[in-house]
């Protein structure tokens, strides 16, 4: 699967908060079999929140810095997520320097909390080491409703 767990960025205030959205589909490959049917793995709900956080960092720094996950203080799941649900990730920067950021956040679906996490510690590393900044700029443009870019 493509490891892009953000479909749209809905609201963003640089260096403060982001709300992003992901639609889930039974056609995706990550579903975990449980006695209650296929569910979104805990780690991927957490990853969706962390990816929202890294878009917030990248856009806040004009794609100079990217977040790499160092630690999670605490994360708690509140219910299962089934195929077809729409996830909304909301992340808030609690503190940020040129080298690291700490964020808190929640994932909701259908208006209900499905996961919350506190103390998400990220190292902020040179984005060019990981990906082509022009590519991430184009993608950010698309995620923010900018449509296709040449």
């Amino acid at each position: 699967m493509r490891f892009h767990l953000i479909d749209r960025i809905e609201t963003l205030t640089p260096r403060e908060t982001i709300t992003a959205r992901k639609v889930t589909s039974v056609d995706e490959t990550y579903w975990q079999a449980t006695p209650n049917g296929p569910v979104l793995p805990f780690g991927l709900a957490l990853e969706a929140l962390c990816q929202a956080a890294t878009w917030l960092i990248m856009i806040s720094t004009d794609h100079r810095l990217r977040a790499a996950l160092l630690a999670v203080g605490e994360a708690t799941a509140h219910r299962d997520v089934a195929p077809g649900e729409v996830l909304s990730m909301h992340a808030t920067i609690e503190s940020m320097t040129g080298e690291a950021a700490i964020l808190d956040g929640t994932v909701t679906a259908g208006g209900e909390r499905v996961l919350e996490a506190t103390g998400i510690l990220c190292a902020l590393i040179d984005a060019e080491r990981l990906d082509d900044p022009d590519h991430t700029r184009r993608m950010a443009h698309q995620l923010q409703g900018g449509g296709p870019v040449g």
Partner: peptide
């Protein structure tokens, strides 16, 4: 692993959450 196609194109790293899983 398919995740390495995008995580990351210039420096493949296993996403920490997959280690957590």
């Amino acid at each position: 692993l398919p995740c390495f196609d995008h995580h990351f194109p210039r420096f493949p790293v296993l996403p920490g959450v997959l280690l957590l899983e």
